[in-house]
């Protein structure tokens, strides 16, 4: 390695970071210092290699085709995202509409009517056990959430 005290200035010289005055001073030093001259030659050899721009060949068309495919895929993902959000939103709203009055023990007239009809239907069908309306609606909601999640996962994986 170069043990000259001016060695530190070499990289600044190569990166053109010296002022005109410093540059002149360093060039004068180079004339008298063999160590720095040798180091400069090695650095120039490194620089001449590392400054070479390597070329990948003709890739323009391939990039454009890949870009179109990616954009189409992203657009599909966007629609899938919107669809998922709508499914989740509607399901959450349904679950909320059902569970909140139930938890707060509020009267649910429409559900009672539904239960009445369901029980009549069950009696007609000859079933002994009465039908629990809430249970049916909960089960429908859970099945809907489960199916929506499965469908979303399948779309994401695809």
């Amino acid at each position: 390695m170069n043990s000259c005290q001016q060695a530190e200035r070499l990289i600044d010289y190569l990166l053109k970071q010296l002022t005109d005055e410093e540059k002149k001073e360093y060039e004068t030093h180079l004339k008298s210092c063999q160590l720095c001259r040798h180091e400069l030659q090695v650095e120039q050899a490194i620089e001449s290699e590392l400054s070479v721009e390597l070329q990948p060949g003709f890739i323009e068309n391939r990039i454009r085709v890949r870009l179109q495919v990616r954009q189409a895929r992203d657009m599909r993902s966007l629609w899938m995202y919107v669809f998922r959000m709508v499914v989740y939103g509607v399901t959450a709203a349904l679950v909320g509409i059902i569970t909140i009055p139930f938890l707060l023990k509020l009267p649910i007239i429409s559900f009672t009517d539904l239960g009445k009809y369901a029980n009549e239907a069950a009696e007609l069908l000859g079933q002994i056990a009465p039908v629990n309306t809430f249970l049916i609606i909960f089960e429908i909601c859970y099945v809907a959430v489960f199916l929506a999640s499965m469908y979303s996962l399948a779309q994401i994986r695809r």
Partner: peptide, 28 residues
């Protein structure tokens, strides 16, 4: 810009085929 991008990637990876692919990925 492809020369600049390819040079950076090839110097970083030293893998010609991967550099071709990563250059395309960069531009995408």
């Amino acid at each position: 810009h492809k020369g600049l991008v390819f040079t950076i990637i090839l110097r970083m990876t030293n893998d010609y085929d991967a550099s071709q692919d990563l250059t395309q990925e960069t531009f995408i």
